[in-house]
Simulated scan of single mutants.
Amino acid sequence: MATGMKLPMTVTLQKPMAMAAPSSSFSLHRAINFRTVSCLNATSNAKVPLPPINPKDPFLSKLASVASTSPETLLNRPANSESPPYLDIFDAPRLMAAPAQVERSISYNEHRSRRPPPDLPSLLLHGRIVYIGMPLVPAVTELVIAQIMYLQWMDPKEPMYLYINSTGTTRDDGEVVAMESEGFAIYDALMQSKNEIHTVNVGAAVGHACLLLAAGTKGRRYSMPHAKAMIQQPSVPSYGLMPASDVIIRAKEVLTNRDTLVKLLAKHTENSVETVANVMKGGPYYMDSVKAKEFGVIDKILWRGQEKIMADMASPEDWDKGAGIKVQDEF
């Protein structure tokens, strides 16, 4: 009877064990794994200090949430060496935030910027520099006038610096790319500004760009040694299939703009209107930095010390005498 009593008991005990075997063995396996990991962590924590961790790191935050909800995802890793570890738990992997959202922490470089660097025109504007490096097309005019207004609003007492390398309202081959009003618009914005305007010719100042160069504050108009300035009559744009009456109207407008340009150049260069008009009648009038200073377009050439070098230079006779050369016959 004792043996018979044991048999049903054994069967009774084995039945639930057989039904619960997968979950129980998995629970047991998980418990063993957790104990092993805990022991390893305790041992490693005691010997090796952990590196600093950024609590706002999205990758670590995701791993922590997965470890708390389903730790088996982290423990039972697939043996696949081709994919980085733990990267497959992300539906849409994003290991780093956008540059503007990256927070500085002790694990990152302390000098890393929190936002993307600004563009170059913004950096120049921070130094109160407005750079015109293109023909005066509407997009350039819009930006330059906005920068002038912004600098005046920021500080009406500090000077602004206008660097010019532009062919005006035409291209270098003389083709018209913009209306003459584009150059007059920037000129009017400069004249309305309360700031002191420092103009610098860094390449070429042609047509209306030359007017902007000469419109700077007296005594604050500069030119690089090899920069060129050029004044010319406004060009007549191509009219295509425009009616004859409209062509005449446009031609009269070009002549009006020419007279206005002549008067403004005469005013800022301190020449007579007749002098400027006669110079422009002869075609494009090119001026190097020395001629531009003589004509009154600029006030100073930025030689960077060349003037002193040329002044200290000895004459050819002194060079010959110092070198021991004697002139036998004089021509």
Rank of each mutant, 00 (worst) to 15 (best):
L162R: 04
E158M: 10
D88T: 13
D155L: 14
D188G: 04
S107T: 15
K6H: 10
I132D: 01
W303A: 09
K47Y: 11
P316F: 01
A214R: 03
P243N: 07
R30Q: 14
T260S: 13
A185H: 08
L212V: 01
E142H: 07
I145L: 06
Y222K: 04
Q101S: 10
N54S: 07
M17A: 08
M149L: 14
M134D: 08
D155I: 10
M149T: 14
V37I: 13
S68Q: 09
C210W: 00
N257A: 12
I32L: 15
P234W: 00
P284F: 04
R258D: 04
N201P: 07
S272V: 06
I231G: 03
R258P: 00
N45Y: 07
V176R: 00
T260Y: 08
M134P: 02
L213W: 00
A229S: 11
H29M: 13
P52M: 04
A214Y: 02
D320Y: 02
M224Y: 10
K263L: 06
K252Q: 12
T256H: 09
L7N: 10
V130N: 15
M224E: 09
K157H: 05
S83I: 15
Y222I: 03
A100N: 06
E330T: 14
L162Q: 05
E142G: 06
N257Y: 00
V236L: 12
A209L: 00
V200Y: 13
Q152E: 15
F59T: 13
Y286R: 02
L124Q: 13
K252D: 11
P116C: 07
N195S: 08
K62D: 07
E270V: 06
D246N: 11
K300W: 12
S315M: 05
G305P: 10
Q192E: 14
A266R: 03
V276M: 09
K47M: 13
M280L: 04
R250V: 12
M191W: 02
M313V: 08
T170R: 01
D155P: 10
A46S: 15
L87K: 07
S24R: 04
N165C: 15
P99T: 01
L136K: 01
V177Y: 04
Q14I: 06
P49Q: 09
A205C: 12
P8V: 12
S65H: 09
E317W: 02
R30K: 10
L264K: 13
S272W: 03
Y187R: 04
N54F: 05
A227R: 00
M224N: 08
A214T: 03
D259W: 00
T275W: 00
T170N: 01
P225R: 05
T275D: 11
P234G: 01
L143R: 15
I301A: 02
Q233K: 14
V276A: 08
L302N: 05
T256I: 06
S105C: 15
P58M: 01
M149E: 14
V279A: 03
P22M: 02
